[in-house]
Amino acid sequence: MSRLEIYSPEGLRVDGRRWNELRRLECSINTHTSASDGSSYLEQGNNKIITLVNGPQEPKLRSQMSIQKATISVAINITRFSKMERSKTSHRNERRVLEMQTALVRTFEKNVQLHLYPRTQIDIQIHVLQQDGGLMGSLINGITLALIDAGIAMYDYISGVSVGLYDTTPLLDLNSVEESSMSSVTLGVVGKSEKLSLLLVEDKIPLDRMESVLAIGIAGSHRIRELMDRELRKHGRKRLSNVSSNN
């Protein structure tokens, strides 16, 4: 197989995007009304993710209960058919998935107003139907939408995106082909600020390039926040008009 040109001299990537372009982002909320209190369906490029939020509800185990605040639990189910090649084993107890779950819990713990819901538990269930790079960022976006749909008080949106570094050019929102051929950084940005709730670098990146990578990542996350916000407001208007037309 001939080697793919990841970033052509003309400045185009494998899927025809420029360095600072996001993938198609489509999202909807309130998709699984009977299965959960809040739900979202997110497509970020070829990532397809269903997020279900249940709660605040009584914890199943008393030992998980906190008197001061709500506890969050995240369960990620990466389906075996989610990649081109079907995986032979279930992903459920992989250390990588456990790490992702912990990271997501800790990201949202600081952003949900947990002190408003003492003695309760918020369960987040994620089903990854298809993955194509930048999974962690998409999971963050999905959870943010589902939590908002569930009406759980949060300080702000958290939007996530991955940025890669190809030679000296930062590339925004990597797909799986790009992700496997360069080092990448995943960011979780709080609202419109420049504050990072989550920052993961898993491969080598020159220290002096980090700043430019973070800058484009933050800009991309703000754009994702805008797209999510637009969808939420559209959904809100629709529901509001349903309510007013019923009266």
């Binding site: 800790r106 990201t107 713990e109 979780g188 709730s197 989550l198 670098v201 898993e202 220290l207 800058a215």
Partner: peptide
């Protein structure tokens, strides 16, 4: 995680208190 060649090998901020990006860069230095 860094090495002497000025390469960032790994960074892990798995949630927790949101921090300003510039402060995080400062930490790296």
């Amino acid at each position: 995680t860094l090495n002497k060649n000025r390469e960032v090998v790994q960074v892990s901020k798995a949630g927790g208190l949101p921090m300003d990006a510039l402060m995080l860069m400062d930490c790296c230095h």
